[in-house]
């Protein structure tokens, strides 16, 4: 009797584990076929001199990587991405934290503010980029004339010196929506009795913010920094839609450079090498930010 039951249970477990295995199969197969293999194909091509079209190509070892790393255009694109990312992270944190703090202060109309501030997060980057593209040509110069500011009177996108900032403005307009909600949730997680007791102890509002609120915001801050770093290093849609890298090559980010080399300029294998270097950089930067930010949390 006892034995029979255990045999039946065993059979059931074996059957169950078979079903569990089948459960994982579709995802694992798709991921392997279309993600892992694609990546390995990329690694392979990065060691060849294939231009993307010709029938013949040969292995060239590390030549593509050497070319890329000594390429001025790649260096310039990298520089663009680094400056852009630093500015993006700093302003996203600053603006969304300020909005969240203001939202946390007000009671009336707060639902309206919140629903409106979140709208940009649901629209496609293409639509946002295209609309702002027109506004930079038609609305902003008018504002510049009205206020008598010289550099605002022509399109910010048409000037190599200001084009990056124009793209950054658009990115901030859309990109602050989700961080704001996250910071607001962080602010609301601060226990109010802790703030009250700090107030009774005579801490002023800055001291309360620094020693009580900020420690509660650090997990959110970490996340916002990491996601924004990734989005800054891989920025593509806005640039493709608004400047396509121009004027000159002043807004040619790495993502766009890879795209151009591969699709328009027939430097296929070189563009793959570029994307592998981008992968390495994103990986290192993510690891460093993760390290740095988690240390800070412990230090608090």
């Amino acid at each position: 009797m006892q034995e029979g039951k255990s045999v039946r249970n065993h059979r059931k477990i074996r059957k169950s584990s078979k079903v569990m295995f089948l459960f994982t199969l579709p995802t694992v197969v798709l991921y392997t076929t279309f993600f892992i293999i694609t990546m390995m194909v990329g690694v392979y091509y990065s060691f060849t001199n294939w231009n993307g079209i010709s029938k013949k190509y040969k292995m060239v070892g590390l030549k593509n990587y050497i070319t890329v790393l000594s390429d001025k255009r790649f260096g310039k694109a990298m520089g663009f991405n680094i400056i852009y990312t630093i500015l993006l992270v700093a302003f996203v944190v600053l603006i969304s934290l300020l909005i969240a703090m203001a939202l946390n202060k007000v009671t009336r109309l707060s639902t309206l503010f919140r629903s409106v501030f979140f709208i940009p997060a649901v629209i496609s980057m293409v639509t946002v980029g295209l609309i702002w593209n027109e506004l930079f040509y038609r609305a902003v110069p008018f504002l510049g004339q009205l206020l008598g500011i010289g550099w605002l009177q022509t399109s910010l996108l048409g000037n190599p010196k200001t084009a990056m900032f124009a793209i950054l403005i658009v990115n901030l307009w859309q990109g602050c929506a989700i961080p704001t909600v996250l910071f607001l949730a962080g602010l609301q997680s601060v226990p109010s009795d802790l703030l009250e007791s700090a107030m009774i102890d005579g801490a002023n509002s800055w001291q309360r913010f620094r020693s009580v609120t900020i420690p509660y915001l650090i997990p959110v801050l970490n996340m916002v920094v990491i996601t924004q770093v990734k989005s800054g290093l891989t920025v593509f849609d806005y640039i493709k839609v608004m400047t396509n890298g121009g004027p000159g090559q002043s807004t040619e980010a790495i993502g766009l450079l890879i795209f151009r080399h591969a699709i328009n300029e027939g430097k296929f294998s070189r563009s793959v090498a570029e994307s592998m270097i981008l992968f390495l950089i994103v990986g290192i930067v993510s690891a460093v930010t993760l390290r740095f930010t988690s240390k800070k949390q412990v230090g608090e």
Binding site: T27, V28, Y31, F34, F35, I37, T38, M39, V41, G42, Y45, G52, K230, L233, T234, F236, I254, G255, I258, F259, A262, I263, F268, S271, V272, S275, M276, L278, F279, V282, G283, S286
Partner: peptide, 21 residues
């Protein structure tokens, strides 16, 4: 672990070989 590794790979890394593949 194998599936999670994909989180760290930006789309632009597979963008070019993907088209050919």
């Amino acid at each position: 672990v194998y599936l999670l590794a994909g989180i760290f790979v930006p789309f632009q890394v597979i963008m070019v070989p993907l088209v050919k593949y």
